[in-house]
């Protein structure tokens, strides 16, 4: 049976692991351990501004993960052309994440799906609760620009590009440690018939259980660096296994 995935998501600014919390910005610390900790997938996001996007420093980081972690690696952040996509695929990543470019250049997302195969394209959706507190709005450009379309209509459009997976994120929850936004997940999940993974808010093991027990969720991402300390992913997975979540617990390492 297909296992539910625990995904480590790391953000980089010009190749340096970017954390707003009390974390020393040094990616070497993390990358040496990620492979050993039983993660099921690693997401690397480039959050650099403008000209620093896809800088040599970021590509070096991607390359380092490819060479050292024999795990699925997904890369996102600023991939707005076939050329940029090619560059990361050539480094050996399986999947890329697109987001804002689908709004400005919808043909590109379809083209990426037909060139690299649907299963290689993940579409992330950043959301915030709307002002009336009832619905959700979708944002692009790292949460800076609100999409001027109804969120479910915009979702429908994204699905029509034949992407292979949706990554849903509540911007306000990100880093909150208050748990995933189950309301947001419920809002979108029934409209999505491809794998759905969620991000934003994981603070404790119970939070992972709350989302992974849902049938329509394929995986949960965490950006919380404190989940990456020694053996913590193993302990999370043992916790989930006890709760009857179908999880991968192979002995890892190489």
């Amino acid at each position: 049976m297909l296992k539910k995935r625990i995904i480590i998501s790391l953000t980089f600014n010009d190749g340096v692991l970017f954390r707003t919390k009390k974390f020393k910005p040094d990616y070497r610390y993390t990358k040496n351990f990620v492979d050993l900790w039983n993660a099921d997938e690693i997401i690397l996001i480039d959050v650099s501004d403008g000209s620093n996007k896809q800088s040599q420093n970021f590509l070096k980081v991607v390359n380092f993960f490819i060479e050292n972690c024999h795990l699925p690696i997904t890369v996102g952040g600023g991939i707005d052309s076939l050329k940029k996509a090619k560059k990361v695929f050539e480094l050996g990543v399986e999947k890329i994440i697109v987001n804002s470019s689908s709004y400005t250049n919808p043909q590109l997302t379809s083209l990426l799906a037909s060139t690299y195969g649907s299963s290689s394209i993940v579409h992330s959706i950043d959301c915030k609760k709307s002002k009336d507190n009832k619905l959700y709005d979708i944002y692009i450009n790292n949460g800076k620009t609100k999409v001027d379309q109804k969120s479910l209509e915009y979702l429908k459009k994204i699905l029509s590009f034949n992407v292979g997976e949706i990554l849903i994120n509540n911007i306000d929850n990100d880093g909150s440690l208050l748990g995933y936004d189950l309301e947001l997940i419920n809002f979108f999940a029934n409209h999505i018939n491809i794998p759905l993974i969620v991000q934003g808010g994981a603070g404790n093991w119970e939070h992972f259980y709350e989302v992974l027990k849902l049938n329509n969720i394929s995986g949960a991402c965490t950006q919380n660096i404190y989940h990456f300390t020694e053996k913590s992913l193993i302990s999370l997975k043992m916790f989930l296994k006890e709760k009857k979540i179908n999880i991968r617990l192979d002995d890892t390492g190489l």
Partner: peptide
């Protein structure tokens, strides 16, 4: 859901050199 993405097992139907030293339940 399609695509099929993630970790899953491969149950052998016959013995093969390709899967030597690999347990059937590995993902």
């Amino acid at each position: 859901r399609i695509p099929h993405v993630g970790w899953n097992i491969c149950t052998l139907k016959k013995k093969s050199i390709l899967f030597e030293n690999i347990d059937n339940e590995k993902n």
